[in-house]
Amino acid sequence: MTSIAFGGGPTLEQRRAFAGLKYGTHVPGYRGYCPQIKYRVGRTYGDNTNELAQTWDHKQPAEPVGYVPIGVQQSRLPDSSGDNRYTKKMVPGYTGYIPRMVFKYGNTYKEGCDVCIDEFLTTKDGLDIKRVDLQRTVRSYPKLQAVAQDPKVRDELNKYRDTHPTRPLFMEDRKAFTEPPIPGYKGFIPRIGTTELGLGGRYHTTTKNGLESFAKETMHHFAVQQEPIKVERGDDLVKMPSYARRLYLHDGMIPKYTGYCPQRRFNFGNTYGDTTRSLNVCKHDMACYGDFANTMRQSAPV
């Protein structure tokens, strides 16, 4: 007798006879769904499932071939091809999304899936038919023609110009920036949400004040940006060459200066100002550290 792994082994009847199970009895340990099993107590699992199997065999006949749940068209449910997602005979335990499944109650998983898939496919096909019908209707109507070159439009505009010489023909001027919007406008209005301009007034008044204040600030900043930059320097700085700009001052560096100071990390026990004043880059009186280094190099013994 070949093993079960290679397609052989005992048949279902032989294994049932070997275990001594009655007809309809589930093997103890079976964790699948068994109707009404949770309402039975006091007997073994085998006896309860045997009685339930006999009861259900008399009360509920087997489903006929080609059985389809109520409300489901058999032709609507596609067969599984390995790529399609929604098919008939959905396996319980599938955790993916099934359209409208959350609104179905009282049926088995298979029946609920079949009904939902049928409704989904029917609705989808109906919308596709409506879309195609709308496209066909749109194509059947003639296309709109531009009226810019229509002589009738030209004559009407000339007539309007003759009868209304003072009014502009088109809206040539844009709306003023400081003109408040109509009540109900939900867009952003500057300077009325975080200042006193938006308190204690009507919408028209507050929006006008906010827009005028914002316009004044904008014009002020624009005027400041247009002014030329004036740099006042002393005579000693003007006479210095372009490379002579001291970064490390003779008076020392200000505390909390986060820049780099050479040899600073090797000094301890003094304040930040005393430490920086004692460094070579700060204690010299030259225009820059390069001049100081050249002087020290020239004065060094050969």
Rank of each mutant, 00 (worst) to 15 (best):
V224H: 08
Y160S: 10
Y67L: 05
F188M: 00
L247Q: 05
I192E: 02
L211T: 03
F18Y: 05
G7Q: 06
R297V: 01
A148M: 11
Y94F: 15
G200V: 01
F170S: 01
R100Q: 13
V72N: 06
V132K: 15
I254G: 00
G187A: 01
P255S: 05
D57F: 13
T258V: 11
G198H: 08
M286G: 05
H221M: 13
D114T: 00
Y23C: 12
G193Q: 08
R100I: 05
V138W: 00
Y257W: 03
P228F: 01
S213M: 13
T2H: 05
D173Y: 11
K283Q: 08
R139P: 05
H204G: 07
Y289V: 06
K104H: 13
Y141R: 14
T271H: 03
P228I: 02
G42M: 04
K256L: 07
A300C: 14
Y94G: 05
C282F: 00
M1H: 12
S242D: 10
G252T: 01
S81Y: 09
A62G: 12
R43M: 14
K143E: 06
D125A: 07
P180R: 05
L121T: 06
T271G: 03
Q14I: 11
P180Q: 02
M240T: 04
F268T: 09
R85K: 14
G9W: 03
K130W: 00
F18A: 04
K256V: 07
